[in-house]
Amino acid sequence: MSVLSRDTWVLVADSEKALFLRNETDADNPNLVVVREEEQSNPKDVAQSANKPGRMQDTGRQQTSAVEDTDWHELAKERFADDLAGILFRQAEKHKFERIVIAAAPQVLGALRDKLHKEVQWRVVAEVDKNLTNHPVDQIESLLHDQFDTA
């Protein structure tokens, strides 16, 4: 069976946006249709931090050291992978898809891979470690077709 067979889902994600697509046709001429879109508002860390970094007393006299503040921007990126894994699990439980291709930026792909439930893991038929979120759907179709047609 070809990777992009009919009804195969494709998740295209980065750390802030995700498209859930379904192939309406066959692998020879994929026609990906948007099933769902997810996006999180994730301003730069400076905009999310309320306080200046803390200070802590050192063992020496009259000495303090800066304490690293939480990077809220990075934390939100990690949580987005959690959110996507949860969405995929709920959709798999409802039998919305039997096969899925995950195309994501390498860092996101790694984080997502670690968080996927077994119910989703066995449905993953391919992974593409590229960020395709800013590509139009027809380009995503072509890129995936080319990648799997030569594989």
Rank of each mutant, 00 (worst) to 15 (best):
R79I: 00
R79H: 08
R79A: 08
R79G: 01
F80A: 06
F80T: 05
F80P: 06
F80G: 06
F80N: 05
D82R: 07
D82N: 12
D83K: 10
D83Y: 09
D83E: 04
L84Q: 09
L84G: 09
A85E: 03
A85K: 02
A85L: 06
G86N: 08
I87H: 07
L88D: 03
L88P: 03
L88K: 04
L88F: 03
F89W: 00
F89I: 01
F89D: 01
R90N: 13
Q91C: 10
Q91K: 12
A92L: 02
A92N: 04
E93M: 11
E93W: 04
E93A: 09
K94I: 02
H95W: 12
H95A: 15
H95G: 13
K96M: 12
K96C: 11
F97W: 08
F97K: 04
E98T: 14
E98S: 15
E98I: 07
E98C: 08
E98K: 14
E98Y: 12
R99F: 08
R99Y: 10
V101D: 02
V101R: 00
V101Q: 01
V101A: 04
I102C: 04
A103Q: 10
A103I: 10
A104S: 08
A104R: 00
A105C: 12
A105F: 07
A105K: 12
A105W: 05
A105D: 15
A105R: 09
P106L: 10
P106S: 12
Q107A: 15
Q107H: 14
G110C: 13
G110Y: 09
G110S: 15
G110Q: 14
A111Q: 14
A111D: 15
A111V: 01
A111R: 11
L112P: 01
L112A: 00
L112R: 03
R113E: 11
R113P: 06
K115L: 11
K115Y: 11
